[in-house]
């Protein structure tokens, strides 16, 4: 990633912060939002690449938690309800932090690849949230500074590190477990061994082991759920 691309990303980042986010507000209950986050959490855990962010849901849930906490503070601390509410909030917070950590781990691991992919997407269908994007950009800058400071001490012919050497890519063909939320026909599996293709049909609620690349679009449109 060269500096002009980084600058471009940073500029877009600033623009995004100005945009209002209320365009995709549907009538969802807190329970629905929680379910969406739980599914996103599992998908993120098991997919090799980073998936589109769910910031609007995560933010909504964090708001909800804050609201609940302020309500709890009005109750007497001896009230059994307080423990029940707090217990649930802890569980939800665990899911959210685990989800976000999982994404950060992937960003760090595939930093160059992730940012390169992000530059090809326009601002509406970004995979990273604004703060994740900022994190990724800064991470790469720091990594570059770090590499530069070390490479200076190397023999002259080893002082440059080619970009591809720093780039780790997720294995998009790696195998994943999944369950079909609805029937999906004509899923194409490429057989890299023999250079042929196989077609399968996923019936509703059936479970499968498939290469990630065969089902990537079905994960994004929620027809299948990773397990």
């Amino acid at each position: 990633m060269n500096t002009s691309e980084v600058a471009e990303l940073e500029r877009e980042l600033l623009q995004n912060e100005d945009l209002d986010e209320d365009d995709n507000e549907e009538k969802l209950t807190a329970q629905d939002v929680l379910e969406i986050i739980e599914k996103a959490w599992l998908n993120e855990k098991f997919s090799p690449e980073i998936l589109p962010h769910k910031t609007e849901y995560v933010d909504c849930m964090l708001e909800q938690i804050k609201y609940m906490e302020s309500n709890i503070s009005f109750l007497q601390s001896t009230d059994i309800q307080v423990d029940i509410y707090k217990f649930e909030l802890e569980r939800i917070r665990y899911i959210i932090t685990s989800y976000l950590r999982c994404r950060l781990r992937k960003i760090e691991l595939y930093a160059f690849y992730v940012l390169e992919q992000e530059t090809t997407r326009n601002s509406e269908d970004r995979y990273l949230s604004d703060s994740e994007l900022k994190f990724a950009v800064e991470y790469i800058q720091n990594l570059d500074i770090h590499f530069d400071s070390i490479l200076k001490k190397m023999p002259w012919n080893l002082q440059t590190l080619e970009d591809p050497n720093k780039r780790i890519k997720p294995n998009m063909d790696s195998y994943v477990f999944l369950r079909a939320n609805k029937s999906v026909s004509n899923v194409i599996i490429k057989d890299v061994f023999e250079n042929r293709e196989e077609e399968v049909e996923l019936l509703e609620n059936s479970q499968h082991l498939l290469p990630y690349s065969s089902v990537v679009m079905y994960i994004k449109d929620k027809s299948v759920q990773l397990l």
């Binding site: 477990f177 599996i189 057989d191 061994f193 196989e198 399968v200 059936s206 479970q207 499968h208 082991l209 498939l210 290469p211």
Partner: peptide, 8 residues
Amino acid sequence: IHASLDHL
């Protein structure tokens, strides 16, 4: 290259 894992 593909396995079905129903009921697991």
